[in-house]
Amino acid sequence: MAGLLVLGANQVALGDMLFVLVSFIILALAVKHFAWGPITKMMDARSEKITGDLDYADQERARAKKLAQEREDALKNSRAEAVGIVNKAKESGETQKKSILTEAHGEAEEVRQRAKSDADKAKQDAMAGAQKDIANLSLEIASKVISKELNADDQKSLIDSYIKELTVNETK
């Protein structure tokens, strides 16, 4: 084997060096064409995609955070608004209640006054009517007493007629 290393020795196969050189270069070219090119391209594309995806994720996270903040603010605002609305409604209800009550009080007072005056008037009317009736009645009785001789039967018939007249008057 040592003889192989000595130049000029009978059995030096220098062609082997050339052969390994050429076959290695051909192998490298073949590997590059069939495997290395496509796969390194894909690996680069993947690393690019991963970088892009990471950037995109960061952006999205920031956006989501902003949105959440906005929502929270909106929620806080709406809560305050709701409280305001309820308070306003309560207030307006209270005022409405007061006005309705005062109105009702006034109306009731008016109705009462009117009823009272009506009753007074009716009473006065009735009194006046009764006075007139009584005057007439006494006049009639007096005239009847005067026009007739009074006996027991007459007395009785007189009273009956009087009562009859009274009931007729009353039913009128």
């Binding site: 059995q11 030096v12 196969a13 220098l14 062609g15 052969f19 076959s23």
Partner: peptide, 12 residues
């Protein structure tokens, strides 16, 4: 050039 068949075949 001298080629060693065993080497070249194995390389191949």
């Amino acid at each position: 050039l001298r080629f060693n068949v065993a080497n070249d075949l194995s390389v191949l």
